[in-house]
Design a protein around this nucleic acid. Structure first.
Lengths: 114, 114
DNA sequence: AGGCTACATGCTAATATTGTTATATAGTAA
DNA sequence: TTACTATATAACAATATTAGCATGTAGCCT
């Protein structure tokens, strides 16, 4: 039953994407590979925190890195990750739009009855 | 800064997808809406567990439900979720293929040196 | 009403995730 | 060697997630 392992792996991938800071890091790496000392100020978190999130993303197979002198340079392994995030954003925006419509309808109903 | 909220929402969505049982539930709902009593045996987990995961998926905006007599029938709200999962599977399979290649290379090198 | 079915929810223990602080490592330069 | 820089890791506390069990609720039937 390779099916179970596949579900596990899929779950792991989504969990790796399930943190705002990690999404932010991946977004920042859209422009290309970056060293940690660039990532840290870009995402606005402490060095050990960023380091651990980078490590997690690497273990999840989302990022890979190489050393260059003192620097460690990270990049996204597979651009499909960007597509996954884009699709998810589309999903979220559609949902937000629905909520806005609902809220507007509710407000209009309130004004009529009030 | 609506940017931060967007990152949060994206993270929440991925966390909602970050569990094998929840992926399994969504996969099962590919064929169309299903009541809880069909979902439970399909995913092979206990009733309260399934119920809680369904509730989480609903809160995340991934599923919606309606009552029909005693039954509660769930369905996927936005087919984009299926696409997100498909893309992720593609990502995972490519990564697995790389690992297989690495392992084969390693084994070949071992055999040459041993 | 009482009993039954299909779900949901509350509680608890186990486990996982996260941020912070302090420390370790690796590479550079003097 | 020493000192410094960039990054990783360890240890800890706080919080979140999860499964399992017990219980609650809502709708149907008699």
């Amino acid at each position: 039953m390779a099916r179970k392992a596949e579900l596990e792996l899929t779950g792991e991938l989504f969990r790796a994407l399930g943190h705002p800071l990690r999404i932010k890091i991946i977004d920042f790496l859209r422009a290309g590979e970056r060293c940690v000392c660039e990532i840290i100020p870009a995402v606005g978190a402490g060095q050990p925190v960023v380091s651990k999130h980078l490590s997690l993303l690497r273990q999840a197979g989302i990022l890979e890195c190489r050393k260059e002198g003192l620097r460690v340079i990270y990049r996204v392994r597979d651009p499909a990750v960007f597509e996954v995030i884009e699709l998810s954003r589309g999903f979220i925006f559609r949902r937000l739009a629905e909520l806005v419509t609902l809220a507007a309808d509710f407000q209009a109903a309130q004004e009529r009855s009030g």
